[in-house]
Design a binder for these strands. Structure first.
Lengths: 223, 223
DNA sequence: CGGGCCTTTGACGCACTTCAATCTAAGTGG
DNA sequence: CCACTTAGATTGAAGTGCGTCAAAGGCCCG
């Protein structure tokens, strides 16, 4: 990833709730998140918003634009974010002439897709409480994978959560309260935090295989 | 695509409702569909099935295995299918040394992802009737793109449809009857057929942009 | 003719929505 | 420092889409 490091410069700070790319755009840059939480979303004709992915530090927002010229969805920040822009041409060049990096980027795309599949399952088959629990487990695992799980705080509003789960804010509130009353999560100020991961994972029947993470290193042997 | 043509040999015919690849497998071949309809799916702990993608002629079933060694979902036929196997190593080789083909395969993956996003929107925001109408519009458009839309017949059972839409077979039946009573679709034997595409598309608020198809050729000029 | 899949239909219950009101915390300006 | 504002969280009551359970009706094929 040496070559990628050369590209990362000029980090930009964006406020919460700001659009980065809009549906229909043909953006010049690919964006990489360094801090904060962003999302992919679409607006519905009735004004509702559907969030189809949460993007956390280490995620590329829009690798697709190197291949698909027009965005079929929008991307925006949920919390304040720090990001870097990478010229789309540079990504194209990497894809075509550096097969190892191309392979890594392809891996990232495929994991995105696997997450989408699991969200689709969640949306179709799990009731809102298990769906929300499952989301929290996934986010914890993904934050853990980039070393940001301690402490794990989710500073999302209930409306943002609701748009992600495909439910109403009112119901998000009730489900959240239910998970809290069962001592799986708690509120730290306005952020959600997990206080009993084991119980949450059991409740959500969470299996992280779909994230295709490298197996955790067992460092108990080489101290 | 000359190079791909060399690879296509030994088409295999599979009966309906047969697994092609199971979750957890580490398959040796990538599969390309020539005829029939297959699907990606996951089984739930309670025995329910969630269908996360419909695969039609021209679709690769499992391009991912060239990069992600373990399948996080299963693939099976819904109707009888004709498919060809392509050794995974061959795909890997194409990805690494033939950037134009690699680009085409990457395009295919990104469109898969765009479809998944739209399904997620459908599942979260659209009621079952509009969701089903939207699915029919998508399938018609995809079949049309590979020249198989005339006549357009969907030989899926209501249970298969229900697993795709995340609803129960009973409700699928009612929704189907409702679309029929509104003269948008009809049954041709046991297959579903569209009798009023315009009305169906308007009802579903269908916009095909997410399929990233090349714009239809206007051949009225060069006769 | 019979058996097995699908499809179709009905009654009832629950998860989630809708509408609406209240409450709280964090500004903002005087 | 305190009115005033405003976004978000919380709570209640009533309505609806969809699920569940159960039974009956078509269609294909042996």
């Amino acid at each position: 990833m040496h070559r990628l490091n050369q590209i990362i410069r000029d980090p930009v700070t964006l406020p919460a709730r700001q659009d980065i790319i809009r549906q229909g755009d043909d953006p010049e840059n690919v964006h990489l998140i360094l801090e904060g939480i962003a999302c992919r979303f679409k607006m519905m004709p009735d004004g509702g918003r559907s969030i189809m992915a949460l993007l956390i530090p280490g995620d590329f927002c829009d690798l697709d634009v190197a291949i698909l010229p027009v965005m079929d969805h929008s991307i925006g920040t949920l919390t304040a974010c720090v990001m870097v822009d990478i010229p789309r041409k540079q990504i194209k060049e990497l894809l075509e002439h550096h097969s190892r990096i191309a392979r890594t980027l392809r891996w990232a795309t495929l994991v995105d897709e696997a997450v989408l599949r699991e969200w689709l399952v969640s949306m179709g088959q799990r009731r809102a409480d298990k769906q929300m629990a499952h989301l929290f487990c996934e986010l914890f695992t993904r934050f853990q994978a980039v070393g940001l799980a301690e402490p794990f705080l989710l500073p999302l509003t209930q409306e943002q959560l609701a748009d992600t789960l495909g439910i109403t804010p009112v119901h998000a509130q009730r489900v959240l309260a239910s998970l809290r009353s069962r001592n799986m999560i708690a509120l730290e100020g306005r952020a959600i935090t997990i206080i009993d991961l084991d119980r949450l994972m059991a409740f959500a029947e969470f299996n992280p295989d779909y994230l295709h993470l490298p197996p955790p290193v067992d460092d108990s042997e080489d101290v």
